[in-house]
């Protein structure tokens, strides 16, 4: 072991760039918001839950461990907890299909898209909770099957099977209603 100079240990040292949390916010806001939308929360509630997610993450960001998960997955894990806490509270959630556009202006060009959203929200609302949760992680948060498996405590193949089954059923019902 060579000589040691304690003072040198306080000298500047290169390791890794500090995470740009502002950039993380900009990149991940949409994914977190859409996770809540796919879980079935109407817009105002989804925004509230998104705010709660980012606030928790922001306050605890020194605890983020990059070797454990991508920051996006870490945020979605927080979002899942926020959703769970919210659903435990004794309150009635208004189904997404009922309110998705009622506070929005709907120009004619957007009317079809809004109708599609309502239909899709209705179909999602009819799914079992687990399938809906996995679809929200996949299509709302944009997670990979591997990340979903870690988040949900399932095997990757199990996640693939559940998603395939959910997608097949949804596709059939979507086509029954007349695809646009």
């Amino acid at each position: 072991m060579g000589g040691v100079r304690l003072s040198a240990w306080f000298a500047p040292a290169a390791d890794r760039e500090a995470i740009d949390w502002g950039a993380v916010y900009a990149q991940e806001l949409s994914r977190v918001l859409n996770y809540f939308r796919y879980r079935g929360f109407e817009r105002t509630t989804a925004e509230d839950l998104t705010s709660a997610t980012f606030e928790k993450a922001w306050r605890g960001r020194e605890r983020y461990r990059p070797e454990r998960a991508a920051v996006s997955t870490w945020l979605v894990a927080i979002a899942r907890n926020v959703a769970t806490d919210h659903l435990r509270r004794p309150r009635r959630e208004v189904p997404l299909a009922e309110v998705s556009t009622r506070d929005e202006a709907t120009p004619e060009t957007e009317a079809l898209a809004d109708a599609d959203r309502r239909r899709l929200a209705t179909l999602l609302a009819g799914l079992p909770e687990r399938e809906r949760e996995l679809l929200a992680l996949k299509y709302g948060a944009g997670e990979t099957n591997r990340a979903i498996a870690r988040l949900a405590g399932l095997s990757e193949s199990n996640v693939g099977t559940i998603l395939h089954r959910a997608l097949t059923g949804l596709r059939a019902r979507w086509d029954e209603g007349g695809a646009r």
């Binding site: 916010y25 806001l29 918001l33 859409n34 939308r37 925004e47 980012f54 959203r117 949804l170 979507w174």
Partner: peptide
Amino acid sequence: DDFLTRLREEPRPEFAARLEEHL
């Protein structure tokens, strides 16, 4: 699975700005 992306939406700018300021 294209149809499943139709629920996606971008955050409202005023919401994004308000939350950013809060953080």
